[in-house]
């Protein structure tokens, strides 16, 4: 495992922790898209079907369990927790799951490395992860005041994607036959979706003003 991959995993973990910190301590999920969180839960469910059959390392298994557990915990908090759910911005979080899930599933059926069930689900999870942030970005655009923790959550997620691209470039040059078009292209699409957010995030940071995305 190289430094880019490890840093990417750590920023991914940080994003989850920042979100749980906000929900658990402030008891608020204002500005957080339930749709995006549900899509992430589905992404991890589809991707980690091999969690018991394919052992890679203790590190991998523990991280998989953390991502699975935390994603379902966050969804539970927003839907069921009696205080947290009151701060959920239902009116503005209107993105439809099916518009993302269905095309990703069809694409996974058509374009995959091997047409076995687990392989298709794995490919589906890659495509879905690439676009799962969209409801969150739409919600940020509609939110007038984005609080620091929400901004940091999206920032860490974007950093995780950017570091994974560095990881793939590194692996391409250091490992024999390391070519993964499906992973790379969906990963690149996913990272590009953050470009706009990063632009405004750094601007607000540089000018020391509150983060706000133009409608």
């Amino acid at each position: 495992m190289n430094i880019f991959r490890f840093s990417g995993d750590m920023t991914h973990l940080m994003s989850v922790l920042v979100l749980l910190l906000k929900i658990h301590t402030i008891k608020s999920c204002a500005g957080i898209s339930l749709k995006t969180q549900e899509l992430y839960a589905l992404v991890f469910l589809a991707r980690y079907l091999d969690i018991v059959t394919n052992f890679i390392s203790l590190y991998n298994t523990i991280m998989k369990l953390i991502f699975l557990g935390s994603s379902f915990m966050i969804v539970w908090y927003i839907r069921r927790h009696r205080i947290v759910r009151r701060s959920y911005d239902k009116e503005h979080d209107t993105f439809r799951h099916l518009f993302l899930v269905l095309p990703c599933f069809i694409l996974a059926l058509l374009i995959n490395e091997r047409s076995a069930f687990k392989e298709i689900m794995w490919t589906f999870s890659l495509y879905l992860e690439a676009v799962a942030i969209l409801p969150q970005l739409v919600l940020l655009q509609r939110t007038k005041n984005i609080d620091n923790l929400t901004g940091q959550y999206v920032f860490f997620l974007g950093a995780y994607r950017a570091l994974y691209i560095c990881n793939w470039i590194y692996r391409y040059f250091t490992e024999p036959h390391y070519v993964h078009w499906i992973t790379w292209i969906s990963g690149l699409v996913q990272t590009l979706l953050y470009a706009d957010f990063f632009y405004y995030y750094f601007n607000s940071w540089k000018n020391n003003v509150k983060l706000q995305l133009p409608a």
């Binding site: 890679i56 991280m63 998989k64 991502f67 091997r114």
Partner: peptide, 10 residues
């Protein structure tokens, strides 16, 4: 043949 080492990523 296919390489499956992308599966060792999260």
């Amino acid at each position: 043949c296919f390489q499956y080492n992308a599966k060792d990523e999260l």
